[in-house]
Amino acid sequence: MSSDSDTGSKAVSSGEAPLGGERPDEAVRRPLAALLRGGVALGLAPIATGLVLCLASGSCGQGALPSLGGLISGVARGDGASLILLGVAVFLALPPLQALAALVSYRRLGNRRFAATSLAVLLVQIIAVTVAWIR
């Protein structure tokens, strides 16, 4: 996946103002940037709404997390804490989606090495979430 090198680094700057030609991995950057922009907006919206509701009511739950069913019913009845937790869940879902997007993009480019690397990142993320919830 990665190689070790005992040679020095190379960092050079040239006088050219714009980047000549397409930047490295441009075809991967575009979908990733779009996913990140959309995901951040989707996560922030319920958090902001939940915060307003919590501030308006003067209280916001604390402590144990609700079950998935409890979270959904809380969101349905406009509970501020549930909305905030929904937004947090969206944020925590974005990293695996990023890895998946990178995997698909590198596969389309025919770059097996970094498609495999993206898959490894995705698998480790899934394992991490599973271990966190079952332990």
Binding site: L36, I47, A48, G50, L51, C54, C60, G61, Q62, G63, A64, L65, G80, A81, I84, L85, G87, V88, F91, L92, L94, P95, P96, Q98, A99, V121, V124, Q125, A128, V129, A132, W133
Partner: peptide, 24 residues
């Protein structure tokens, strides 16, 4: 952005989260 969620879900699963402060 790819990795910190692994630690976050551990703390979240154990209830170490305050929704109001988290939102702020």
């Amino acid at each position: 952005s790819l990795t910190a969620m692994a630690g976050a879900v551990v703390y979240m699963a154990r209830g170490f989260i305050n929704p109001m402060i988290t939102a702020l």
